[in-house]
């Protein structure tokens, strides 16, 4: 039950993009077409879950015993950057179909602040390993949900007569705001 609530909270109540302002660049940049959005979302779920597990181990097994907690940021970003490189090479060799589906998104993920953000949030909330992994996967699923909904709506908007000054980024941001507004329906559902 605890995990169920954690998942619901991470996907709907505290959606990583719409309520916590993380991962906005890919959210607005990769939401022009639904297919791209699904690919990006899948890649993010994959990397975030893996990265959170590894950074958790790095923090608890390496940094804290050595009293180097203040190096958290630098350690985490290096782990994430290396992980993304490694995943890219691994997929290319072992799972070419998956690589073709996710490959082009992988380089973009290093600078996706949702990855580093989720890893740090897990540490600040002092989650255990399993809880961190569940939280990370659910948060990334929330990212994917927001991304796919956004892409589907933007595909429709292509036919609308949006005023010129609002086209592109501005209307994307306003749309994100309205989505975030609708997600307020979930506020308070999990205290």
């Amino acid at each position: 039950m605890e995990y169920f609530l954690l998942i619901i909270a991470a996907i709907f109540v505290n959606n990583i993009v719409l309520a916590q302002y993380l991962g906005n660049c890919p959210f607005l940049g990769c939401s022009r077409a639904t297919g791209t959005a699904v690919g990006m979302g899948g890649a993010v779920i994959f990397v975030v879950t893996l990265a959170t597990a590894i950074t958790w181990l790095v923090q608890k097994r390496l940094l804290e015993p050595m009293g180097l907690e203040y190096l958290q940021t630098i350690a985490f970003i290096l782990v994430i950057a290396a992980l993304v490189q490694f995943v890219e090479m691994f997929l290319k060799k072992v799972l070419p179909p998956l690589y073709r589906a996710l490959g082009i998104f992988l380089p973009l993920i290093t600078t996706n602040c949702a990855v580093l953000g989720i890893a740090i949030i897990c540490q600040r909330k002092e989650y255990g390993l399993l809880k961190s992994v569940v939280f990370a996967a659910a948060s990334a699923a929330g990212f994917m949900l927001a991304l796919v909904l956004m892409a589907a709506i933007r595909e429709r908007l292509d036919t609308a007569r949006v005023p010129r000054a609002l086209r592109g980024m501005p209307i994307g941001l306003i749309l994100a705001g309205l989505m975030s507004l609708a997600f307020f329906a979930f506020s308070g559902m999990i205290a």
Binding site: L18, A19, Y21, P163, R164, A165, L166, R167, M169, P170, I171, G172, L173, I174, A176, G177, L178, S180, L181, F184
Partner: peptide
């Protein structure tokens, strides 16, 4: 000051910049 306002506000400011440019 809530999240939706942040998005909408930035969106409108960007739109204003675009209008100014044009």
């Amino acid at each position: 000051i809530e999240a939706p306002g942040a998005f909408v506000c930035l969106g409108l400011v960007l739109a204003g910049m675009n209008a100014l440019t044009n």
